[in-house]
Each structure stands twice: as structure tokens, then as C-alpha cells.
């Protein structure tokens, strides 16, 4: 056991080096942006990086956002592993979030079971939302990237329609949103009064489950094989289509669960346009984590801290929250590109 840990430690450095390099470069780029646009760059940048660690409340906020990002990052990861690009996590999060609130309120069950039912309903909703793109990809060969994106434009519109016309809207709220869940139907909080909640443990448990499936089961082995060498997998007698479908549905369900936990654990209701792009951030998290279970957790914590930091930076200085989205795009390039090759090409050497 110890041996394995030690070996893991060595390879962990090799595995995480590209991520650390990409993070360093992109933080440098964002520092340059901050210097360019800000009157008080040092305050702004310090708040961006450290805002999440100022007090227990902001630390808790960081954990609650990281919870959602672990799940949406895991959703993207599960897809990528088998060669499926679920670019529509955002939409699955919306349908999962609304479905969870509806089921929690309607289920005639004792509270713990009602919460469980709500979370499962969110997963089912997310899986249903990826059904059409998944079937089109697997049976008709239509690239899932455009269809999942299209579905993610439809989801916020559909959920807002249901909210306004399905008798779900809280008449006393200014913003379109549902009534709040009664306290018994909420996931318990940790680090109250921040919005961190037991969803974090659910997310961590699912990462462990993902690791077990990936490393210790035939399904996991098949997923990796289908993702890396589809034709070889075919020759090995693996049913590529089935493995791909399973990955799609798992991906949709995980994103749906992320939405459900926003509703049941964080906001305690469904709010119109509640997501600051959790679904897209999930793609970045999956890439920074290099599709590894531990990597996804670390990347989600990092990005959770940056989301909280960006919010504080916006209030504390003249640098807007949007810096976070710039960074997100830059990180995608740096994580998927081959920096070493560029270095060799630009500066010569080996």
C-alpha cells in the first residue's frame, strides 16, 4: 500500500507538471490583464487568488462551488474518457436543478428519502437531456458537440417556461424562482452560514466510485480502450456503442446531479439563470485535472477558489468577474496544447 502511494507520488509530479505549468502561465496572463486594466492591480490580484481564504464564510462558499465543479468536471471527464465530448453540461445542470426542486416538493416521502429522490430525479433529468445527442452520435455518427450545445441553449428556455407556466413560481420573489424548500428537504449545511453542504461528500464519494469503476472494473477498462483505441476495442469484441452510451448517460446524470445539488444543497430553490457557467467550467476542470479522479477534485477546488476570489475582486477593486472566464479559455488552450513542443520550436534545443 505504502509502496503504491510512493510510486503514485512520483508519477503524480510527472502527471501534474503540465497542469501546474498551464496554471502558472495562465495566472501570469491574468496578472498582466489585471495590471493593464486596474488602478489597484495588487489589491485586485491578491483578492482574486486569496479571496476564498479570507474567512470561514468565503472558504465555505469555495467548498460549495467546488462541490458543483467536482460533479460537472466529473461529468465532462466520464465523457472524455470514452471519447464523448459532452459540451452541454450547462443544459443538463438546468434541467437537473428544476427537476430536483419539483420532486423534492411533490414526493410524498419522509424527508431523507425525498432528498434522495430529488437527487436521483436530477440525475434522470440530466441523462434524459443528453439522450438525443447520445443516440445521434452512437447510431448516426453525428458529432455530439453541436447537438449537446444546442440542447444546452434549449434547457434554460424550457425550465423558465415551466417555472412561469407550471405553477412553480414564487409570487413574492422579484426574480423568477421557485418557493424555497422547507428546511427538512435541504441537504444539511457545513460551515454554516456559508452554502457549503453535504453535497460535497456526495461529490467526493462519486469521485471515488469513478476511480473504482475506471481502475478496477471491466467497464472502466473498456471505457478507456474505447476512448483511446476504438478500432482495437472493436477487434477485442467490445461493444463500442454500448460503452459509449453508458458514458454519455453517466455524464448527463452527473451534470444533472450537479444541478440538483445546487437546488437542494446550495440555493434551496430554482432560480432563473442561476449558473455562472458551471457546465462549461466543468470542461475546464476536467482538462486541468487531466481526467484523473484526484486531479478533478484539485482542479475543482482551485476553480472554486477563483470563482469566490473573482466575486470578491469585483467588489473590492475595479477588475470585473469576467477575468475568470478569460482565464478559463486560456487554460483550455494551455491544458490541451503541447507546451513542451512549443518551447522546443520557439527556443530551439532538444
Amino acid at each position: 500500500m505504502l509502496e503504491r502511494l510512493r510510486n503514485a507520488g512520483v508519477s503524480a509530479w510527472a502527471v501534474s507538471r503540465p497542469s501546474l505549468l498551464a496554471i502558472t502561465i495562465s495566472l501570469t496572463i491574468s496578472f498582466v490583464i489585471v495590471v493593464a486594466v486596474s488602478e489597484q492591480p495588487v489589491v485586485a490580484f491578491r483578492t482574486f487568488l486569496g479571496g476564498a481564504f479570507e474567512n470561514v464564510y468565503s472558504f465555505g462558499s469555495m467548498l460549495s462551488i467546488a462541490t458543483i465543479l467536482i460533479l460537472s468536471g466529473l461529468a465532462a471527464t466520464v465523457g472524455f474518457r470514452a471519447g464523448a465530448f459532452n459540451a452541454g453540461g450547462e443544459g443538463q445542470i438546468y434541467v437537473g436543478a428544476l427537476m430536483a426542486v419539483v420532486v423534492a416538493q411533490a414526493a410524498p416521502l419522509p424527508p431523507p428519502l425525498a432528498i434522495t429522490a430529488a437527487l436521483m430525479a436530477g440525475m434522470v433529468a440530466g441523462a434524459i437531456w443528453i439522450l438525443v445527442p447520445a443516440l445521434m452520435r452512437v447510431y448516426l455518427g453525428i458529432a455530439e458537440i453541436v447537438t449537446t450545445l444546442m440542447a444546452s441553449y434549449i434547457a434554460p428556455l424550457l425550465t423558465i417556461y415551466l417555472l412561469m407556466n407550471g405553477g412553480l413560481r414564487n409570487p413574492n420573489a422579484g426574480v423568477p424562482e421557485t418557493v424555497r424548500l422547507v428546511p427538512e428537504l435541504r441537504l444539511p449545511r457545513i460551515l454554516s452560514p456559508s452554502s457549503a453542504n453535504w453535497g460535497l461528500f456526495i461529490a467526493l464519494a462519486l469521485v471515488v466510485a469513478y476511480w473504482i469503476v475506471l481502475e478496477r472494473t471491466r467497464l472502466g477498462m473498456r471505457m478507456k480502450l474505447v476512448g483511446q483505441q476504438p478500432s482495437f476495442a472493436e477487434t477485442m469484441g467490445i461493444d463500442n456503442k454500448r460503452v459509449l452510451l453508458v458514458s454519455f448517460f453517466a455524464s448527463g446524470a452527473l451534470a444533472g446531479l450537479a444541478g440538483a445539488i445546487v437546488s437542494v444543497g446550495m440555493d434551496h430553490r430554482f432560480i432563473q439563470s442561476f449558473s455562472p457557467g458551471y457546465g462549461f467550467l466543468g470542461i475546464t476542470v476536467a482538462l486541468i485535472g487531466r481526467l484523473s479522479p484526484l486531479g478533478v477534485i484539485l482542479a475543482a477546488l482551485l476553480y472554486g477558489a477563483l470563482v469566490v476570489g473573482a466575486g470578491k475582486m469585483q467588489t473590492a477593486s475595479d477588475v470585473p468577474f469576467a477575468l475568470l472566464f478569460v482565464l478559463q479559455g486560456v487554460l483550455v488552450f494551455l491544458m490541451t496544447g503541447n507546451l513542451a513542443a512549443v518551447g522546443r520550436r520557439l527556443f530551439g534545443g532538444r
Partner: peptide
């Protein structure tokens, strides 16, 4: 494909900024 998605994220952020 992935670079395209990253590009879209980046532009969305830059214009907002």
C-alpha cells in the same frame, strides 16, 4: 474542436471584461 470551445470561452470572457 476543444481549442474552438476554449476560444469561445475566452472571447466571451474578454468581451465581458
Amino acid at each position: 474542436i476543444i481549442a474552438g470551445i476554449g476560444f469561445n470561452m475566452m472571447v466571451s470572457g474578454v468581451t465581458l471584461l
